[in-house]
Design a protein around this nucleic acid. Structure first.
Length: 222
DNA sequence: TGCCAGGCCGGGT
DNA sequence: ACCCGGCATGGC
């Protein structure tokens, strides 16, 4: 195990505690949120999800039955509503056609195989797939997002140009393959990123300040 | 008041 | 293998 990765985790956990991610009432709601949150603030996503909940549409068959044009209007507050309605529907096609709408059945598939199948769906990229696998299915795959890249690169722990799979490998090879750990770790990176790396690049005063490498934080923007 | 938020795709080098 | 424009709403 990578001592730095473990130390960063311990420091974040001591500072912020358990994060209770993903904010959702059911695995299906996690799936829906994973698509809607693409390059979008969670605040906007919540409006769209609440709208679906009020209409009892947070269920695979019910949501799948909604025509695209209606879906567009329902999820409008989440932004990119035309393309996201189609992406969401593509995912629902997959879930209903292959698994009869059963997440339990879907998550019987092995992690590598399910990941590949999800990536074949138009509109599901690596982060959305990993979010579904980890946060809806409890499968041990690390979620890499903008915050992960920002926090790790600005502290000098990875080069700025590290791509998704390189970052993911870094976590996979440096930590035990534990879904609960991956879940909490990613949530903690988002938390520290929101607090310290959103507007101002300097992570002065954050929980990781004394872990900075010689030369200090990296300031080139992502 | 502009800028940005928990990406991804398609077309181009 | 990258690089880029497009996609859209709501909050600060």
């Amino acid at each position: 195990m990578d001592s730095t990765l473990q130390e960063v985790y311990d420091r974040l956990y001591a500072a912020y505690g358990p994060q209770q991610w993903w904010p959702a009432d059911s695995p299906f709601e996690v799936m829906v949120g994973a698509v809607l949150v693409q390059n979008t603030s969670w605040q906007n996503v919540r409006k769209a999800i609440d709208c679906l909940r009020r209409r009892d549409l947070l269920e695979p068959h019910a949501l799948h039955a909604v025509p695209i044009e209606e879906l567009e209007e329902l999820i409008r507050p989440a932004g990119y509503y035309r393309i996201k309605a189609r992406r969401l529907h593509n995912l629902l096609d997959f879930l209903v056609d292959r698994y009869d709408g059963s997440l339990e059945a879907m998550f019987q598939t092995s992690l590598p195989e399910l990941r590949e199948r999800l990536l074949e769906i138009n509109g599901i990229g690596p982060e959305t797939a990993d979010s579904i696998l980890l946060y809806a299915g409890g499968m041990p795959t690390f979620v890499v997002d903008a915050y992960t890249h920002r926090v790790m690169s600005r502290h000098g722990w990875i080069p700025l140009d590290t791509n998704y799979y390189e970052i993911q490998d870094h976590f996979h090879s440096g930590l035990p393959q534990d879904a609960a750990l991956f879940n909490e770790y990613h949530a903690l990176l988002v938390e520290v990123g929101k607090r310290h790396c959103r507007k101002r690049p300097l992570c002065q005063g954050c929980a990781l300040a004394d872990l900075l490498p010689p030369g200090g934080a990296i300031h080139e923007d992502s």
